[in-house]
Design a protein around this nucleic acid. Sequence first.
DNA 1: AATTAGCACTCCATTCTAGTGAGTGCTAAC
DNA 2: GTTAGCACTCACTAGAATGGAGTGCTAATT
Lengths: 354, 354
Amino acid sequence: MADTELDERKVKILNAIIKNYLETGEPVGSRTISKYTDLNLSSATIRNEMSDLEDLGYIVQPHTSAGRIPSDKGYRFYVNNLIAEKDKEVADMQEWMIEKTEKMESLLKNVAKTLANNTQYATLVSAPSVVSNRLKFVQLSAVDEHQVLSVVVMDGNIVKNKIITVDKPLDNETMLKLNMLLNTNLNGLTVDEINLALITKLKEQAGIHDEIIAQVLDTVAETITEGDDLQVYTSGATNIFKYPELADSKKASELLTTFEEKQSLMELLNDSTDGNENTGIQVYIGDESPISTMKDCSIVTATYELGDGVKGTIGIVGPKRMDYENVVDNIKSLKGQLDKLLKQEADRKNDNRN
Amino acid sequence: MADTELDERKVKILNAIIKNYLETGEPVGSRTISKYTDLNLSSATIRNEMSDLEDLGYIVQPHTSAGRIPSDKGYRFYVNNLIAEKDKEVADMQEWMIEKTEKMESLLKNVAKTLANNTQYATLVSAPSVVSNRLKFVQLSAVDEHQVLSVVVMDGNIVKNKIITVDKPLDNETMLKLNMLLNTNLNGLTVDEINLALITKLKEQAGIHDEIIAQVLDTVAETITEGDDLQVYTSGATNIFKYPELADSKKASELLTTFEEKQSLMELLNDSTDGNENTGIQVYIGDESPISTMKDCSIVTATYELGDGVKGTIGIVGPKRMDYENVVDNIKSLKGQLDKLLKQEADRKNDNRN
DNA sequence: AATTAGCACTCCATTCTAGTGAGTGCTAAC
DNA sequence: GTTAGCACTCACTAGAATGGAGTGCTAATT
């Protein structure tokens, strides 16, 4: 894994520089390293090595006669080694918060909150994309003469509801019939699988009530897709004030606005879903970030699975000098727990079916 | 309305000072006023008057040899006159956003967003307190063998749902029976009215299923009250960065954290519900605010009614030198529209009942 | 050939020093 | 009661002086 362009000593020195900078946030000088490491080298030697490292692009000087700070490339090197070599020691995490799974929404809110508390960075969690998720249950009920409540339950107990206004009251019998029709035909399907043929078939079977079926189906589709863009929960956004390099008015404003609007966060999370390979962990450093307002940040994301390719994402946003080890451990652990938890539920569901 | 301690000229000068300060945010000096007003007085005269106004506590000097800025008392005087005398010219507001009332939640989110855009301050909107609101419809449905979905619809089409886990599957007949039982007994009641006697009665009628009824009732209560503390939507919190006096790291951090946590915002909104008299508009200036992190802000709130004492609140948070006129106009107009809208719905409901 | 000591140099950050200007308060004249 | 005039205060700014951390280079050392 160690690049050939760096000999062992350079690697040690680079790591020392980065570790130190992660702690202090100040440029680190040759004398500091000379003492900090067990290499027993004088500051002059370190200076020569640092000069090489700078030529190679791993570190930079904010100005002549200042110490060095890691470049994006330096961070990248550090993180690659970290993730490749560490794959143990996943910290134990509180499980209390997963007790009540009934509500997906509050579960995810809790995940975001806990993670923000543990890491002191800003966190975001996206709900599993509903589009390729399966319908579990549909129900229409007459609330009053002109209003019909439609409730849709998806796998993972994601519940959506909407009130439809109808011109004429529906009698009980029709209601029952429609419910039967909807449930027998739709249950177990994904949104993608509800195609025109099926819709036509449903309408035929509904007879004179085809108008209503159409409206209901529209609503079902709408119900499922509507807030989908906005299904992202954030927490600890104001933690960024803890890091001076992000806390100045302009940057903080941009960052927090990004968090408030949530729109562009989705892009980030979607991007993560594709990108990462085997580990499921994705790290963006500085300019690597897909969101321009986060050029001065690092982002760590993990994708959790709900089965059948239905995925959601957890993310952490902090300064470039974030505590990558701790963050990766935390997020890995959480991802594991979510995977496990949702797996359990999927299994339980299958048991029921058999 | 004009206080006896201020003669007409002092009032004019005070107003001039405040108006000018609202625009510029800079301390305003005697020479500025001397030109700005049509009083044709020299700066020296203004100085004398300003000295008096300072003695009376309406304005303060940030330091000797600076101009004056309004004190909280000064703002208060200004606002009182403003609200008392202005009761016309309520700006016309876009109505498009109220088209789709089906979902209370998105309606309120929209209200917050629109208001934030119009005023460029931070806004918050609380959902009508569900506690004294009436149940409109309750429904239990079996999602699978161990999970029962309970949906509760309140007046104003506030829909809440929750999934209950049960040990034994419920057969169709029981389900129907329970639904009948719940709806005939609970519809039209407020949460407060569901007392022990009623619960006992329900349990008796449920026979061997009293356990389930208990659990369901628990859930209904929980469903209704649970997220109730958190039912507050905010928008434009990051607008505070537009006002230098709030944008420094420390203050901004505190303020935004308050907005993020939402907990204490509830106190503010609850406080407003009681406080205001006939107009329905409440203005907190600086220290008057019930939330300590907003000591440097002004807050304008309005209470909207959903009928039967069920109330929600709209609020705007900005710097003390906020554009009170515009804010009050906006919030008044919005309150009016919400009142009207919800009134309509209440009427429609009553029509249906007759 | 690699390492180190030593020294001159650079540049940021801090402190101090006027200098400037907006604004006041007071007094005396109108 | 109003105004002109003047001395005074105080924040803000620019510039100069100082100190210190850190570098790069060269020559000596191992």
